[in-house]
């Protein structure tokens, strides 16, 4: 046959929009994340039918309904487990997990840590709004101490979790953070996550303008963000501030803020190394919290390690190669048998 099939037109963000009406509150940070995801998708060069979004329950977990890919809106906290099963049997698919701070760290905390330690080839995107949005405003595992909500009228008294510290504690091979309104940065981080092999964990600071408006104001507002966040770049010193005049230096094992000039050079600063085999540096960075420190955004860690899904399938293939395809009749008739005439 000689009919040349014309190359299909490249996909656009619009091709990734499903026919469903988006139902988040107007002004919700989730819109921005959805827009960036749809923008990133065509850049990956993966056909839509080979992409699956799996989510749990929460405002954020409605996400799969809005993507014109395969998708599953599952049950609260369990998306990583479902995605693990799917990826284990279908290594050909690119599987994304969409979760919230409550979904991923509270009810789903167990699956979260085990998925990461197994390094299953999944992209786990956590929309962190420091609140339970869907259930209308209770404090979440990432709400700060003292947070007054419907379920904590006198202020939350449980110490919050830091999602990145948890992920790095589980030796996540890819860890990153971005901000819903920092759209260019967010797009780049999502793309990096998509390209990673193994579990890629991304925390996105997401504003819930209904129940926790302004939770990330310090990190997203134009006026403050240069001083309250620090963009990580591999191999570069940690410099921040509107005038790029401040940096992070290690004092023993503790980070400290220093002013550049006055005898302090960029060379004296902490250099970011996302490829460091030990998670120590990434962990240290994850501990830098507002207001004491600027909070790092970008890729904290990006290393290569064995993936559960790959190893599982490798065992199957090598067993088949070594022993041949199993023969049930042979199996059943092996061992001790007897014949009745």
């Amino acid at each position: 046959m000689s009919t040349a099939t014309p190359a299909p037109a490249p996909l656009t963000a619009a091709d990734f929009a499903s026919d469903q009406d988006v139902r988040w509150c107007p002004g919700c940070g989730d819109y921005s994340i959805l827009a960036q995801m749809k923008k990133v998708m065509p850049q990956l060069g993966i056909p839509r039918e080979n992409i699956v979004f799996v989510s749990g329950i929460g405002c954020s977990s409605r996400f799969p309904y809005y993507m014109n890919t395969y998708g599953m809106h599952s049950i609260h906290g369990r998306a990583p487990a479902i995605a693990t099963g799917l990826k284990s049997v279908r290594p050909d698919l690119q599987v994304w997990v969409i979760t919230g701070d409550g979904d991923g760290l509270s009810i789903g905390g167990n699956h979260f840590i085990h998925t990461i330690r197994r390094n299953v080839d999944l992209r786990v995107i956590m929309f962190n709004n420091r609140i339970y949005g869907l259930t209308k405003g209770q404090y979440s595992p990432t709400s700060p101490l003292g947070k007054v909500t419907k379920s904590s009228p006198l202020g939350a008294i449980d110490n919050p979790l830091n999602p990145l510290s948890v992920a790095i504690g589980c030796e996540a091979t890819f860890v990153a953070r971005s901000i819903d309104v920092n759209i260019k940065h967010l797009g780049e981080v999502l793309k990096r996550a998509a390209e990673h092999k193994g579990t890629a964990f991304v925390e996105i600071y997401q504003n819930c303008n209904i129940f926790n408006d302004g939770a990330w104001e310090y990190a997203s507002a134009k006026a403050t963000k240069a001083d309250t966040t620090i963009e990580l770049e591999h191999g570069k010193p940690l410099i921040f501030g509107k005038n790029k005049d401040k940096g992070i230096r290690l004092n023993g094992t503790e980070p400290e803020i220093v002013e550049l000039g006055k005898g302090i050079n960029p060379d004296d600063l902490l250099f970011h190394d996302e490829k460091s085999p030990e998670p120590t540096l990434a962990y240290l960075l994850s501990r830098m919290r507002h207001p004491e420190f600027p909070e790092p955004i970008g890729v904290f860690r990006d290393v290569v390690a064995p993936q559960y899904d790959v190893e599982l399938n490798r065992q199957i293939e090598s067993a088949r190669a070594k022993k041949g395809e199993g023969d049930l009749n042979a199996l059943f008739n092996s061992g001790e048998t007897w014949t009745v005439a």
Binding site: R78, A81, R90
Partner: peptide, 20 residues
């Protein structure tokens, strides 16, 4: 797949069922 708990066990199976 030896899961971390019974919930993950069935959920992984649901994922695999979705995968065919």
């Amino acid at each position: 797949f030896q899961a971390e708990d019974e919930i993950a066990a069935i959920c992984s199976a649901i994922g695999a069922a979705y995968g065919g």
